[in-house]
Computed example of a mutant assay.
Amino acid sequence: MKHLIKLTTFSMALAMFHPCGVRAQSAGSFVTTVGAEWLDFPNSSAQPIVSSSAFGTFTSPGTNVSVHNAFTPSVLLTYFITDHLAVEGFVAVPPKLEVSGHGNVMAFGAGGPSLALSNFQPALTARAFAPVLVAKYYLGGAESKLRPFLGAGINYTWFRSVQLNPLFSGTLSQVAGPGGTAQASASPSWNPVVTAGGTYQINKRWSLTGSVIWFPLKTTASFNAVNADGQVVLSNKTRISAAPLMVNLGVGYRF
């Protein structure tokens, strides 16, 4: 991943605008870029887990989570409004994120049973849908071969197929009693986005693009014990902060 970031940074630093004789990135151009995305979560963390039941509400100090890195294919759709200003939509195959838990959950207080999250790894998995829409400003002219860019925009992230570790799920189901189940979810969120990178124009149609995208992702993860009547008998919540660094490399085609 560090090599990808260095490559993108190097492309930006090479702001030498060599004319290539074609206006491949000019007003009205539409470029589709297909590539791959590396998601790095260097500073993921969570607030202590809060558990609520008929016995009261208790916080488990020292509990935390870490989100594992992931890799997935990606597609960028870029439209040039002017020679310098473009709008871009970014989508990727929803990666399967793995979340590891740390510390001990004391759902019924300090005097009750303690559950070590280290026994359930990963504690949770989920598919993340995180499309991005940005406005980008390109340096250099439309005929330049190398064009660094900066951008900002918005992201909406939601999660599907949120699943607990089978052993963790089984433990919660026992708390729910006969016929009980464990249910997990993660809340969606809107997030501001910043991006930087560069495009190298191979010829009038084809190009190479490298970029880095960052946004402060937050979600509330819940994992509950639900009895046979559908009532939540034990709820557990934590607020997760992930702030992924998304490194993208791709090959673009101008239509």
Results as ranks from 00 to 15, higher is better:
62 G>C: 09
2 K>Y: 11
89 G>S: 07
205 R>N: 14
219 T>Q: 02
187 S>E: 13
201 Q>R: 10
228 A>Q: 12
80 F>W: 14
141 G>S: 13
40 D>F: 02
180 G>V: 02
244 P>R: 04
224 N>L: 00
175 V>K: 05
35 G>Y: 03
219 T>V: 04
218 K>M: 02
110 A>G: 08
188 P>R: 04
3 H>I: 10
229 D>K: 11
113 P>M: 12
78 T>P: 06
118 S>V: 06
49 I>L: 00
16 M>P: 05
219 T>W: 02
54 A>K: 05
51 S>M: 02
57 T>Q: 09
13 A>G: 12
245 L>C: 06
231 Q>Y: 05
149 F>V: 09
77 L>V: 10
169 S>Y: 01
23 R>I: 04
46 A>M: 01
5 I>Y: 10
155 N>S: 13
60 S>D: 00
238 T>D: 00
39 L>N: 06
148 P>S: 12
197 G>L: 08
156 Y>D: 07
252 G>W: 06
170 G>M: 09
161 S>K: 14
30 F>L: 13
67 V>H: 01
55 F>A: 14
217 L>H: 03
67 V>I: 14
129 F>S: 10
27 A>E: 07
169 S>M: 03
40 D>C: 02
30 F>V: 12
109 G>H: 04
162 V>A: 01
31 V>R: 15
21 G>A: 12
140 G>R: 05
13 A>C: 12
156 Y>E: 08
54 A>F: 04
248 N>K: 13
221 A>K: 00
7 L>D: 05
82 T>Q: 11
13 A>K: 08
24 A>G: 15
94 P>Q: 09
203 N>F: 09
13 A>I: 14
251 V>Y: 10
254 R>P: 05
12 M>G: 15
15 A>S: 15
249 L>S: 09
251 V>C: 09
16 M>N: 12
87 V>G: 08
5 I>K: 13
68 H>Y: 05
183 Q>M: 03
47 Q>M: 03
188 P>T: 07
127 R>I: 03
92 A>F: 10
115 L>T: 07
186 A>K: 00
51 S>L: 03
149 F>R: 08
154 I>A: 15
36 A>T: 10
98 E>L: 05
178 P>A: 13
